[in-house]
């Protein structure tokens, strides 16, 4: 895992030197190569100081358009902006249609913006598992902020709060009816709420519905901002609201705690994945055999499980 070969060192150096092709290849490694991906991240060893902003919300709310508009606002402020846009992989054939760039045309031709589309590849929660490593790679190449756009989400896909320092939840008129159902999940993920497509009918009603839903919360409710991302209206104010909650804010300990929790979550995920890979490499055939017996009625499910996981053996901590 930690074999830092010449190719890894070479690619890391080129990423740090801001070679675009190397950066693209590095992102492929962290997405697809279980050996060289982690080795590359280790070689880069980024401090995790770039401002990571998550954007989530239901399909069609305008996440991609808003992310593009935010990127423009940050560019105007002189920042180099990285974008990670996640779309779902099919659980059936693994294919994916990655269409977020369609809404990001305004950013093309600018070498200080780098956009990468990621497919979820089986990860639940609205993100790709490679998104943390991908953000590290972008940070190593000098991008700050890094905007992370999730798939279109429903009520409970809030992985983005792990990946981002600050999360904006984007809603659009017409989604007012679902607010009741979202209270427990998506709304709680929001550091900032945005009603996008504010020029459409129903925007006022949505803002009011959100504000009354948030009143019931014990903690400080997030602000509700209004944007029309297609023309950039309200985007500067949104950027200010995000920055005000970021690492340079009056309460940096919130972001610091999230970054600590992120590191712990990344360690957990990587160790779990590594153990599971190794375990099933050895036990995959037995599992298939046990499944046959269960279906044939010769074995109970609990007994089949016990044969693979007898008494939690092998899971004791080092």
């Amino acid at each position: 895992m930690t074999c830092t070969g010449d190719d890894v060192r070479d690619l890391a150096a080129r990423v740090v030197a801001r070679d675009g092709r190397a950066l693209a290849r590095a992102l492929t490694w962290v997405e697809s190569d279980v050996h060289r991906g982690p080795a590359l991240v280790e070689a880069l060893r980024v401090p995790g100081r770039a401002f990571r902003v998550g954007a989530t919300g239901p399909p069609g709310a305008g996440k991609s358009t808003l992310v593009a508009a935010l990127a423009v606002a940050w560019r105007q402020a002189g920042a180099r902006v990285g974008v990670l846009a996640v779309d779902p992989s099919s659980p059936f054939h693994g294919g994916a249609l990655l269409g977020d760039r369609i809404r990001m045309q305004a950013l093309s031709g600018d070498t200080d913006v780098f956009i990468r589309s990621l497919a979820t590849r089986g990860a639940l929660g609205g993100l790709a598992s490679a998104v943390h490593d991908a953000a590290d790679v972008l940070e190593a190449a000098g991008f700050d902020p890094i905007l992370i756009e999730t798939v279109g989400v429903g009520q409970s896909e809030v992985e983005v709060t792990r990946a981002a320092d600050v999360t904006v939840v984007v809603l659009a008129p017409g989604s007012g009816d679902v607010i009741q159902g979202m209270k427990a999940g998506l709304l709680e993920a929001a550091d900032v709420l945005v009603v996008n497509q504010d020029d459409r009918d129903g925007a006022d009603a949505l803002v009011h519905a959100l504000e009354s839903a948030l009143e019931l919360r014990a903690i400080q409710p997030p602000p509700v901002l209004r944007t029309v991302a297609t023309v950039g209206r309200g985007v500067e104010a949104l950027r200010d609201a995000l920055v005000a909650r970021g690492p340079g804010s009056a309460a940096p300990e919130v972001v610091a705690e999230r970054r600590r929790a992120r590191a712990a979550a990344r360690i957990t995920a990587a160790v779990d994945a590594s153990r599971a890979r190794e375990f099933w490499r050895r036990a995959g055939a037995l599992r298939e055999d046990l499944a046959d017996q269960v279906v044939a009625g010769r074995l109970g499910l609990a007994e089949a499980i016990a044969r693979l996981a007898p008494d939690e053996a092998g899971t004791e901590a080092p």
Partner: peptide, 28 residues
Amino acid sequence: LRDAGCEVVYTGLRQTPEQIVEAALQED
């Protein structure tokens, strides 16, 4: 292509060659 298991980046209408190549490189 998606249904055949590919990850397909679709960039929409009226792309210039420069935009196409930029996207192809970034998306590797």
